[in-house]
Design a protein around this nucleic acid. Structure first.
Length: 468
DNA sequence: CTATGGCACGGATT
DNA sequence: AATCCGTGCCATAG
């Protein structure tokens, strides 16, 4: 079954294999937690002094020479892949960290990026008891970042709290970064966003009223109706409409990939910490690419040599225990190496294949499947799946995207589609779009265009109007 | 008649 | 084995 790893590091036990798998699927954050706890509980494990490159001060991991300045750059077109510990990412971690055992009643498995991201922001504003509820609340969000009203009632019953209490928690959540997240409806989400915007800039007159009770008319573009309803002119309505489409997002969770044009805050505070960073050496565009696989610790893990010596003199009864400590420690170290090794090979291959996309944007994304890559690297496909899942990459342009997007068959088509729509002179129908896409080399069915449209939140042709 | 959204099927992915 | 995704066919709205 497992005929993996051509030049495998060492013979593998099943335990070894199992743990490598687990480690592989962990995020930097999770990995750090894992290592920390092992370090704390296992006396045999030791973290030795980090080594810095004498020239560039970059922290060195478990490799001999510094990849940036001292390693000879022989393969000009092969990106450099290496493991890089980055403790500075973690030094400035805010409050929540220690109480990260919040969602522990069976929901812990599914805490995804968005929920944790939101929770981090709001934790300081919450009473300790409320954090659990908030965490629980956040796990019930749907893909759009909204929540069913019934969930709120259920939560109230589950925790024996008055509904008003839950609502006040919801209110805090709604004001966290994907603004409006955790609302019960798109309407509510947009109202929250509007409220925030009102504080920083001028909002057109009827925007609020329209959202409150005119959305169904608005989505059908019945401006005349609306104008009549609010006793105003059509142009004012259109003005409000434009403002709404440009600044509000009915699906808070969707805002990550798309909009970066927002008068509001953000800019600096992005999503998570990336697990991998792709960039040019010394930020110089002409230099070859380098790929850093981030390690949550600096220095090298090893078995404490003192411990090894000491075990010989320890009394018999304890010997077994000590021995198992050493076992565990060495297993962890080996698996960690294995993990890094696999990640390096994986990323090397990914970067080679997707260089176009990494440098020039998503439209150049090649269709790459996990199976393909698995064959290439001669590992089991599930290995790739695990390695890719839940991880994020920072691209040279500083954008952070999920590693899985390199395997997304349709991402390129979708971005081109967006471009097309953005550039269109007149609303194009789905079949016309399909044709244009085919011209660009993306042959997709008309029906699929429709799906992508809705995925990207683009309205159907007859509801779009030429906003220029 | 055209443009779209819904349902469902088959193949790929996990 | 369970799930996701692209598509084809059909019903419905304009």
């Amino acid at each position: 079954m497992f005929q993996l790893h051509t030049q495998s590091i060492r013979p593998m036990t099943t335990a070894h294999l199992a743990q490598t798998m687990t480690l592989l699927s962990l995020t930097v954050d999770e990995l750090r937690q894992q290592i920390d706890s092992e370090l704390a509980s296992n006396p045999a494990l030791e973290l030795v002094e980090e080594r810095r490159c004498p020239t560039c001060k970059r922290i060195l991991g478990d490799m001999g020479s510094c990849p940036v300045c001292s390693s000879p750059l022989t393969h000009q077109d092969e990106p450099l892949v290496f493991v890089s510990p980055r403790e500075d990412f973690y030094s400035k971690e805010g409050g929540v960290d220690k109480d990260s055992d919040f969602s522990d009643d069976g929901y812990s498995t599914v805490v995804d990026d968005l929920p944790t991201y939101v929770l981090r922001q709001i934790a300081p504003d919450l009473e300790i008891e409320d954090r659990r509820v908030a965490a629980h609340f956040l796990t019930h969000l749907d893909d759009d970042g909204l929540i069913e009203e019934s969930c709120i009632i259920e939560l109230a019953r589950y925790y024996h709290l008055p509904i008003s209490r839950i609502l006040s928690i919801q209110k805090i959540i709604q004001h966290a970064d994907p603004i409006g997240v955790g609302s019960c409806s798109t309407r509510e989400a947009m109202l929250v966003q509007l409220e925030m915007l009102e504080e920083v800039c001028q909002v057109p007159d009827f925007a609020r009223s329209i959202i409150e009770d005119g959305m169904n008319l608005l989505s059908r573009h019945q401006y005349a109706e609306l104008a009549k309803k609010y006793h105003t002119s059509v142009s004012k309505i259109q003005n409000a409409f434009q403002f709404i489409t440009e600044n509000l997002n009915p699906f808070p969770a969707r805002s990550h990939w798309g909009d970066m044009r927002q008068p509001a805050p953000d800019t600096a505070e992005v999503y998570h910490q990336p697990d991998i960073i792709i960039g040019h050496i010394n930020e110089d565009e002409s230099m070859p690419l380098m790929v850093e696989i981030i390690m949550p610790i600096s220095g090298t893990l090893q078995i404490n040599p003192m411990f090894r010596k000491a075990i010989k003199q320890v009394e018999e009864s304890k010997k077994e225990e000590w021995k198992s400590d050493i076992e565990r420690a060495s297993l962890l170290v080996k698996c960690l190496q294995q993990r890094n090794h696999t990640m390096q090979r994986l990323m090397l291959e990914v970067v080679l294949r997707q260089k176009g996309a990494i440098l020039n944007g998503d439209r150049h994304m090649q269709s790459l499947t996990r199976v393909e890559l698995a064959r290439e690297l001669e590992v089991h496909e599930s290995t790739i799946s695990r390695a890719v899942a839940k991880k994020t990459v920072q691209l040279p342009n500083k954008k952070i995207v999920p590693l899985a997007s390199f395997f997304d068959r349709s991402l390129n088509v979708r971005t081109v589609l967006c471009d097309l729509v953005a550039k269109e002179a007149r609303p194009l129908s789905d079949s016309e779009l399909a044709k244009l896409l085919a011209k660009e080399g993306f042959k997709v069915a008309r029906r699929t265009v429709a799906k992508y449209r809705s995925m990207e939140g683009i309205l159907p042709a007859h509801l779009r109007h030429t906003t220029v």
